[in-house]
Structures are given as structure tokens and as C-alpha cells.
Amino acid sequence: MPMDFSYKETWLHKINPSLKLLVMVLIFIHLLLIHNTNILINYMIGMLVLYLFFTGHPWRRLLVISIPFLFIFLTSSTSMIFFGKGEITWAEWGLVHITEESFFRGLHLGFRGIIFAVLGIVFALTTRPVFLFYSLMQQLKLKPKYAYSFMAAIRLIPLMIEEMQTLHYALKVRGVQGEKGVRGFYNKLKSYSIPLLSQSIRRAYRIAVAMEAKRFSIPGNRTYFYRLGFSKFDVIFLCYLLVIIPLAYITANHFPYFSITDVRFGR
């Protein structure tokens, strides 16, 4: 939730959110078609540049956020490295069978995971949800019913955290004493999660009624308080990608890191 921290606005913030989202989905599909690890690594570098230099968030925050990247890399790659199909055996202990092919396929998956993570976080760090949904309504014709429900629901999330605090107070005030051990933990989990869910549903329902009371559902063309259009920053963004992606291919062809060019089995 980027709006809770302070940050500098950069050109990435000013890109049209719908465009940003669409481009990311296209990149996703494109990445599924890349089976050459060399290209993928260059691709990754191109995206990391966006993350490291253009999100406008301080270094320390970026560093903390990137810790899970390591996990992504491991979760995406280990089983493939250990258990993937392959012919050139490197090592074998019991069930584990590491082959050259499986190793590079695992590596490939790891890098791909990191690209998705980086892109996702760049999006999260540079997009205000309110603008995203206004833009989805204006550019992609998302129905206001859905967009405003999202915006209202996102606003409720911090309130829910507060609610948890309140619940804690209430139980304390009413003299509930925490039990120890697994049973205590289970009871605690239950005495928080169920009220929290039911409270949130009630609150959501009331907000829906309040929205109706403010004539949300009258038919006709809505006007918008925020107008999201396109700007030169969208062009910059597209140009950046149009330079980086071909560059990733060219350098991968001329200066490959590995000799394997297709990680799929039997290619």
C-alpha cells in the first residue's frame, strides 16, 4: 500500500495505470514464450533497473522489500533442479537427481520468478489504487460498481487493522485471559478471525447502503473527479521497453552466459 509511506514521485508514477497493467500482462505472456535463459537474464536486468532507480522509494525500503526475492528464486527453482528430467547427470542422491538440463531449467524458473516479482512490486510501489481504478473505469470501461467497491474495500483494510486492536481491547476489558499452549492459540485465532471477518462484512454492507443513499446507482454517465489520460510518460515507458527487450535478445545472442538456448526437455 504505497500511499502509507512517503516517496518521491517519478515518471513511473505518472504512467497511465491501465496502460501499465496491460503492458505487464503482455510482458507476462511474452515471458512465457522465452525459453532461453540468456535472454531472460538480460530481461531481468532491464527490469531491475526500473526497480532500483525509478520507483522513488528510499534504498532501505527497497532492500527490505527485496528479501523475499531470494525465496522466490529458491521456491521457483529448487524442485526443478532436484527432480527435473534430464540426461546429463551431475549428481544423484536417492530421489534427488540433478542434471544439467534440470539445473538450467530450474535457474530459468528462478529468474523468471524474480522478473515477475520485480514487475509486480514496481507496479505496487508506483501506483495509487484510487488512480488505478479510476483509470480502469475510464480507459478499460470497468463498471463503476466494481471499481468503487474495490476502492471502498481497500480503504477498509487499515480500518480492519484498527478493528483488531479494538477487539483486543474489548476482550481485555471484558476480562478474557489468554490461555497458553496450542489450545490457547487456537482459541485466540478463533476469537479474532471470526469477529474480524463478520465485522468487515457488516461494515462493507453498511458502506454499500451509504453509497446507495448517495445515489450511486442512478443510471447515466458518471463524471469523474480524477481524470486519467495519457502523457509523454507513457511514451517514455513504451520506448524504454522497446529498447530494452530487443537489446536483451541481441546481447544474449552475441554474448551468451550459457550455451543452452532452450531449457525445455528434449529441445
Binding site: 460498481k145 467497491s149 474495500a153 481497500i154 477498509l156 483494510i157 462484512i201 461494515r203 462493507a204 446507495e212
Partner: peptide, 21 residues
């Protein structure tokens, strides 16, 4: 879409976002 009321949608989304977290 047609069959869902605003309150249905909002409640669905709030449940979804809780699980999103």
C-alpha cells in the same frame, strides 16, 4: 454482473481482500 447488487459486490470484494492480505 447483472444479478449482483452493489452490496453483494462490496461484500465479496472485502472478503476477497482480506484473503488477499
Amino acid at each position: 454482473g447483472k444479478g449482483l447488487k452493489l452490496s453483494d459486490i462490496l461484500v465479496t470484494i472485502i472478503i476477497a481482500l482480506i484473503f488477499g492480505v
